[in-house]
């Protein structure tokens, strides 16, 4: 079933798929940023595949590359038990991507976490602010260029 998804995606977005592979029942698709939202929407609305759960949104920082931030979305079907992984590369100078909160409410906090840790901006997000760290935190700690020895001033009534 999950291989059929891959074929269908490749047929639907022939020119936008950067790469794809299938291994151990996990289907991975890397797509251009422009068509990313359409692909997620297509996967969600496709009755045939019954993808009904957004498992996780995360980001990978590849330093020294112009396509520095790789967004990773994990989708799952609770009825048919198969997964699809969607990846999209973002440029270092412009790490913005469409928010998928209109499609999945659970993306709200997941996207806020990615914003918190990597500084990726989600367009049309209803409440894009830090979720785990505090507002006065400077920088994005899970970026590879955040120094391990960097210290932040203690927050709160102390200062």
């Amino acid at each position: 079933m999950s291989k059929q998804i891959l074929e269908k995606i490749l047929k639907k977005f022939p020119s936008d798929i950067v790469s794809s592979h299938s291994m151990f029942g996990n289907e991975t698709v890397e797509i251009k940023k422009e068509s990313f939202y359409k692909l997620i929407e297509f996967l969600k609305d496709s009755r045939q595949f019954e993808i009904d759960m957004l498992v996780d949104i995360t980001c990978v920082d590849y330093p020294y590359q112009s396509n520095r931030f790789m967004m990773v979305y994990h989708l799952y079907s609770t009825t048919l038990k198969h997964r699809v992984r969607v990846k999209t590369a973002l440029l270092e100078e412009n790490p913005t991507i469409e928010s998928i909160v209109p499609l999945w409410e659970s993306a709200n906090w997941l996207e806020r976490e990615v914003f918190d840790m990597f500084g990726v901006i989600f367009k049309n997000h209803p409440n894009l602010k830090r979720i785990l760290l505090y507002d006065s935190f400077k920088g994005y700690p899970l970026r590879k260029d955040y120094p391990i020895t960097q210290r932040q001033p203690i927050v709160g009534p102390l200062n």
Binding site: Y134, I154, V155, G156, P157, L158
Partner: peptide, 10 residues
């Protein structure tokens, strides 16, 4: 943690 410290100080 940094977020806990103000509570401890309090």
């Amino acid at each position: 943690s940094h977020k806990q410290m103000p509570i401890l100080k309090n």
